[in-house]
Simulated assay, not measured.
Amino acid sequence: MRIDLGDDEQPEIGLIALIDCIFFLLMFFMAATSFKHPDGKKPEKNMRILLPTSQVSLDPATAGPAPLIIGVDAEGSLYIDGKRVSTQALHDLLKREAARDPAQPVRIDGDQAARYQDIVHVLDLCQFEGLTRVSMHTR
């Protein structure tokens, strides 16, 4: 004699319970993790960066042709050979130098307090004109 126990249903995995367990584990690990800094200090919102100085200098005799020197002061003013120039004048000079010699080396003398954006702007002008031999002067 056979006993009928009802419909033969396939077992299902309870996804709701599984999601609850995963969420519980996530909350446990978030609460158990310590977010304190080891030295007890709070992180600063502004990064204070001191730019490094180079201990190595090149020998001028082996450095190759004289580079075009572009100066950038702390206020973002541009200088060519010690004379203040506008951005348009610098652009025109770089265009002439690139037409004359695309391998012309360029050296950027940036003030330590100069904004990074001002230096990047000069680098963009050099790259736009095809001058790729660009170096930064350090002290």
Rank of each mutant, 00 (worst) to 15 (best):
F29P: 00
V56N: 10
I69G: 03
A17G: 03
L58T: 15
A32Q: 05
F28P: 00
R2K: 04
Y79T: 01
L125Q: 13
R115W: 03
T87S: 15
A61Q: 15
D73G: 03
V56Y: 15
S54V: 09
A113D: 07
S34F: 00
A114G: 03
P67W: 09
I49M: 10
A103K: 12
I3H: 01
D4L: 00
Q127S: 12
R133F: 06
H37S: 13
Q10R: 10
H37R: 14
P11N: 00
D81Y: 08
V72D: 03
Q55P: 02
D124G: 13
L18A: 13
K95F: 08
I119Q: 05
E12V: 12
K42R: 15
I13R: 09
F35P: 01
K45F: 12
V134P: 02
A114Y: 01
I69E: 12
V72Y: 03
D7L: 06
R139T: 10
D4Y: 02
A99T: 12
R115S: 08
I119K: 06
G76L: 02
D39Y: 05
D8Q: 04
E97D: 07
P11W: 00
D20P: 01
F128G: 09
M30Y: 07
L18G: 03
R107F: 04
D111Q: 04
V72R: 05
R48A: 13
Y79A: 02
D7A: 07
V56L: 14
G130K: 06
K42D: 08
G14W: 02
A31Q: 07
Y116V: 07
K83Q: 13
G130P: 05
A99F: 05
T138G: 11
Q10H: 03
L123T: 06
L51A: 15
I119A: 09
I108W: 00
R107N: 04
G40E: 04
C126E: 04
S77I: 00
I16E: 14
D59F: 06
T138L: 15
S54E: 11
D124N: 11
P43F: 05
D124I: 04
D109L: 14
M30Q: 09
I49A: 13
